[in-house]
Design a protein around this nucleic acid. Structure first.
Lengths: 217, 217, 217, 217
DNA sequence: TAATAATCGAGACGGTACGTCACGTCTTGGA
DNA sequence: TCCAAGACGTGACGTACCGTCTCGATTATTA
């Protein structure tokens, strides 16, 4: 969560001394950043360009964000519909995951994909951003999968031994892989086949484990 | 494939006029690049630093490579053991994939991981490098999985409907995800669980498809 | 003259409405400025540093001074011993000027020298400060020389044609020159030789003028 | 002496490896600097402005000069007529010094004055520039006075005890003082009176010294 | 006793210039 | 034709101060 967010959600909004942060500047910076990102690509997204476009001093940007990636992350979070926090509930794990993955794949195959690619690339070079990206964005997505799996376990669809974290890896891993490596398209067919395989893998995992144990004897 | 590779694999290495390419410079450049990469990280890997360390002019580097990433890619390929091209053959798809994934995961959890992270990040910003990375490195890994799956299909372990490409996505996707997102470690347990789930997913995929078809009615 | 001085010397200090100026802040600002000047040099003397050291807001500084140089000037004036205003009276112009120049040279060869150098440099870039520096500091020094010369003229030591202003130039010019150019030290010997030459120059000036007039014929 | 000067005067101009320094860039930088200085004043003379006007990169400027002041100094030296190195020879010390000081005073009262003021101010903040300014500019002026005095001593006009360095201080000190302090104009009258007093001071100095020695008894 | 007025600290703001870094290109002499 | 050396224009970096502008709080005079 960014400083600004923290301040806003502060239960005791003690009016600190000094001139308060300009909300117009904040908005202009985030909007300018997203505008440049959409129009000219992440390579063109630098602090000087954002500052110039937003009519803001570089110092003001650096005061609140440590790099352009953090600005984009903040925009992404602000843009994230709270309904996305709602876990789909179709009655089956297969349906839930389909419901979850299909829009994700669709979004990533469009403009959103380039943004995520850039942020993930950025995270490889900046550990501080990696941590923020993981905590503020990725973990929310993973949490949904965990919740879906937990519900399926209560329903008896999936054995209790199945780890929700592994399930999240199985779901998002291949999507990320295609997104970043670009060896194939992110389309509906892929989403269907991916979920199909993941669900089968989770359901029949006990059989596999048993067989592996037998092989180890 | 880089210019250098193209020149080397040229079946008719017609000796062009002029001074031939210096093999010492080529070696020094690649070694210096890898040395900087290991010691100071990818962020410190720039052409000027490589040139200085290798005792080479920048021009010489630019003549043969278009960016530092290509140098690293060339080093990686040269370093890639030809035996890695061999498809493991343990008699079961589970064993084959275990044999394949365990050393991969081990390598990525060590120094090799940082190198891959950096190159994948670079690929997001440079489409030309992305293409080279995919063609020269990733495709080889994917091909092995496809071969393993094909053999398992002949053995009757896995239905023929299973797509080898999807299998590769299922295997490498989660690995890449953990590598890049860093939410969990790349260890033996993960490798085992991953393969376990993937194999189950591939084997029982028909059942899942059938059930999905039924649900669609 | 600064606003502060004007306010203090205001014969009718009609108490304006509102919170009065904080004497602690004024003192802290001046002391902090001199402390920074002595320890880190004039280059490090900026408003932000003074404000931070004095525990004062920048606004408060800007309200009363237009630049750091004015703060230093105020400190210098406050520090200036009123006895320095006393014209030395040894009975001879030579003795008077020696009495005047020796302590000046000694002070300038120590810490005071750096302060003067900085202020004179500042005056070259800021005409408003130049005016203040001249009026509040330099003119006092020059006035003493003029008084000494006038007394010597009454005594008959120096012809009445001699201009007191030129005498001040002759006395302080070389001192300033050595201070700013740094080609030689400001020491007792220099002070003695300087005054010796100046006094001779002033005393026998008529001879020179007469000879010059003859040459002009 | 700047690097460039050193290189030019190098008796063995060994053609060093690498691209040679661009003479056009050097010329453009110096001209642009002087142009800005004349038109907008020293306060507006910053590296970015010079680079922009000269169509040159900042790096190129920083490669050869450490500040704008050094550029101006180089321009001043290049502009310095070699005939200025010639010592005036009118047959009398009075005439020689008049010949020397009159054009100096005239130049300083015009555009040249602002340049000198700025450079002397700069020298107070930058010891490295102070050294260069002293060695490359001031020392030449002082040397002329020393030569004039030495000739006058051979002629018997001035006693041998007179120190040429003190003479230089006496001549240039008051000029500098008026230039920097601005309490009076630099005009012909001042030049005449100054030299008149200095010559008298130097000629009759023995009398003064004798009198001082008597006083010390 | 309130209203008015000026000050104070804190600190965010737009702005300018800094000096550095790395880029990719160009221009030498020499191999 | 390649090589090392190294200078060049370009563009962005992150920092330092500038002088100004809100804030809430404080402290005086004035109504």
């Amino acid at each position: 969560m960014s400083n600004a967010e923290a301040a806003e959600s502060n239960p005791a909004p003690r009016p600190r001394a000094g001139r308060p942060r300009s909300v117009e500047s904040r908005r202009a910076i985030i909007q300018s950043a997203m505008h440049i990102l959409q129009n000219d690509g992440y390579a063109a997204l630098n602090i000087e360009a954002i500052a110039a476009k937003a009519g803001v001093s570089k110092q003001t940007i650096y005061r609140w964000w440590s790099s352009a990636a953090f600005i984009v992350l903040e925009a992404l979070i602000a843009d994230m519909p709270s309904q996305e926090g709602l876990v789909p509930d179709t009655g089956s794990i297969r349906g839930d995951l389909q419901e979850l993955v299909r829009p994700t794949v669709r979004a990533l195959s469009q403009r959103r994909g380039a943004v995520y690619k850039a942020l993930i690339a950025e995270a490889q070079a900046d550990p501080r951003f990696a941590e923020a990206f993981r905590a503020q964005l990725m973990s929310a997505h993973r949490e949904i999968v965990r919740a879906v799996v937990a519900r399926a376990q209560l329903r008896g669809e999936v054995p209790f031994e199945v780890d929700g974290d592994l399930a999240a890896d199985l779901v998002y891993g291949p999507i990320l892989y295609r997104l970043l490596n670009g060896h194939a398209t992110l389309d509906e067919t892929f989403a269907f086949d991916l979920i199909d395989a993941v669900v089968s893998g989770l359901r029949y995992r006990d059989a596999g484990v048993k067989r592996a144990a037998e092989a180890a004897e």
